[in-house]
Every structure is written in structure tokens, then in C-alpha cells.
């Protein structure tokens, strides 16, 4: 029969390389497209001024600030809850029906479309709890959206901590909770940080949930409390590119906004990578 090992190896290798190059090519193309179209729009004024004349002129300052607030707010909601839940599930929960139900719920949440989260946030936070369309409602909604991701990655990070550390600590007469706090958690921080990086990108880019829970169509000032409405980059981009404004005239602003959004996500990722590396070095070598 046909192919010898060497030939089939070559063919497989060629296909794999082609697939990898295609993916990389698309990413580079998108980056190039956005940067080349957007960088002319970038200026100090664009980054630091309020939008004017129904957003056809001026900057996107409130949208930048709004997006950063959203990242911080949703992380404050999701990180503690997600990590604590992950600790419970990996270290304490028995293998029973309750645990199974919780795991299933987390899997389903991870697959739920974000607009459904938006509707839930609208019903729960905006209406029922009376937070109104606000930074708080939007942060809580986005927080819920990313909790499954944080739980999953934290669980993996906790499980990746060698069981030998736990054994060693317990054998010293250290209680379980002290063991988790002093040995397991520090050792799993790099993994948890990696998981959070992924969710930050998601928070920064989501449009549907915030559209329903507090993002303003046009609001030329900064939010002054957690109960204020706010502007955010993805929604701003959506507005510029579709609704009632002059789409052709704001084309450069759209690309500029997209570029800024991209840069914020990259910058946050970069910081997260530094944090991760710091902890890895502290732990290993």
C-alpha cells in the first residue's frame, strides 16, 4: 500500500504548516487593516477630548474611560467569586450530585450567548434591584458573563499544583485551609492570571450586554458614580458604524476607535503577562 512513513509525514507537516500560516495571516491582515486605516485618526485630541457634533468630530475620551472602568468593575466582581468557587470545587466539593449540578451550570453559562446575559442584567440589576442603566449594572452583568471562564481556568490552575505540595503541607500538621492559602493559591497564581487575561479581552469587546444595562449612545462626560451611565468603545464603534450618524464621514473615527480598543486589550494582556512572569519566576528557577 501507498505511502511510506516519510512521505505521509511530509504531507501531514505541509498541511499543518499551511493551517498555522493561514490563521497567522488572517490575524496579521486584520491588524494591518485596522492600523493602516486607523492610525491617521489617532491624536492627542482624539484620545483626550469629548465627542462633538453628534460624534462626527472630537475624541473618544469617555468611551476609553468607560471601557477601562468596565474592565476593573467586572474583574472586581468575577475574580473573587470565580476563584473562591474554583477553590470550593477543586479542594472541598465531594463527588456528588450537587457538585455535578454546579459543574453543569458552569458549562452551560460558558456557552450562553452574551445577549442573554444582557437581558438577565436588564431584568435583574437594572429593573429588579433598581440599579438602573449604570456602570454597576453593566459591571455585574459582564462579571457574570466571565465567571465561568475564570472558574474553569482557576480550577485548572489549582489542579495543576502538584499534589505533593498539599501532602507535604498537610503532613506538617498544617490545616487544609492554611495549606490552600499559603501553598496552593500562590503556586496557582500564574494559571489564574492567564485565565483572567482571556476574560479581559472579552469584557473589553462585549457590546450586547452593556447595550442593555447601561452604555450610553452619546454622553459627552465621564461617569461620576457607579450609578451613572457611561460610554464604551465597542458600543461607540457600533453606533458610529451603523445608526443615525454620518457613516461615511466618521469612517476614520471608526477605525481610530477600533485601533484604540485593540491597543487597550493588548496593553492589558501585556501587563497580565508581566504579572504572570513575575510570579512564575518567584515560584520556580
Amino acid at each position: 500500500m501507498g505511502l511510506n512513513a516519510k512521505t505521509s509525514e511530509r504531507i501531514a507537516f505541509a498541511f499543518l504548516t499551511l493551517a498555522a500560516l493561514t490563521v497567522a495571516g488572517f490575524v496579521l491582515f486584520i491588524l494591518y487593516y485596522i492600523v493602516s486605516n486607523g492610525y491617521n485618526a489617532i491624536s492627542i485630541e482624539f484620545l483626550t477630548e469629548m465627542p462633538r457634533k453628534m460624534m462626527t468630530e472630537g475624541g473618544i475620551y469617555p468611551a476609553i474611560v468607560g471601557t477601562i472602568y468596565l474592565i476593573i468593575g467586572s474583574m472586581l466582581v468575577a475574580l473573587p467569586m470565580g476563584i473562591l468557587a474554583a477553590i470550593y470545587l477543586t479542594e472541598y466539593a465531594g463527588q456528588n450530585r450537587t457538585t455535578w449540578a454546579i459543574e453543569m451550570a458552569i458549562n452551560n453559562l460558558a456557552g450562553t450567548p452574551s445577549v442573554v446575559f444582557g437581558l438577565f442584567g436588564l431584568a435583574m440589576f437594572v429593573k429588579y434591584l433598581g440599579f438602573g442603566p449604570s456602570l454597576l449594572s453593566a459591571s455585574l452583568t459582564l462579571g457574570l458573563l466571565i465567571i465561568p471562564v475564570i472558574i474553569r481556568s482557576s480550577e485548572e490552575a489549582l489542579l495543576a499544583v502538584p499534589p505533593e505540595y498539599r501532602e507535604a503541607s498537610l503532613a506538617l500538621g498544617i490545616s487544609k485551609w492554611q495549606t490552600i492559602r499559603h501553598v496552593v493559591l500562590p503556586a496557582s497564581i500564574p494559571g489564574i492570571v492567564t485565565g483572567s487575561i482571556l476574560s479581559i479581552g472579552r469584557v473589553a469587546g462585549e457590546t450586547a450586554p452593556i447595550l442593555l444595562t447601561g452604555a450610553a449612545y452619546f454622553l459627552p462626560r465621564l461617569p461620576d458614580s457607579v450609578y451613572s451611565q457611561f460610554m464604551a468603545l465597542p458600543y461607540h464603534l457600533f453606533v458610529l458604524a451603523t445608526a443615525g450618524t454620518n457613516i461615511a464621514q466618521t469612517r476614520p473615527l471608526q477605525y481610530g476607535t477600533a485601533l484604540v480598543l485593540l491597543m487597550i486589550v493588548l496593553a492589558v494582556n501585556f501587563v497580565a503577562v508581566l504579572v504572570r512572569r513575575y510570579y512564575r519566576q518567584k515560584l520556580k528557577i
Binding site: P162, E164, Y165, A168, A171, G173, I174, A187, K282
Partner: peptide, 19 residues
């Protein structure tokens, strides 16, 4: 059990220092 393990220490098969 925690007190017991203070009284009865254990060294394992693979060296397992903490990071």
C-alpha cells in the same frame, strides 16, 4: 488530625520542597 500530624511527621518518596 492536624495535631496528630504535628506529632507524626512524614517524608515522601519524591523530594517535594515548596516553591
Amino acid at each position: 488530625v492536624v495535631d496528630l500530624r504535628k506529632q507524626v511527621g512524614m517524608v515522601f518518596q519524591k523530594p517535594n520542597p515548596f516553591p
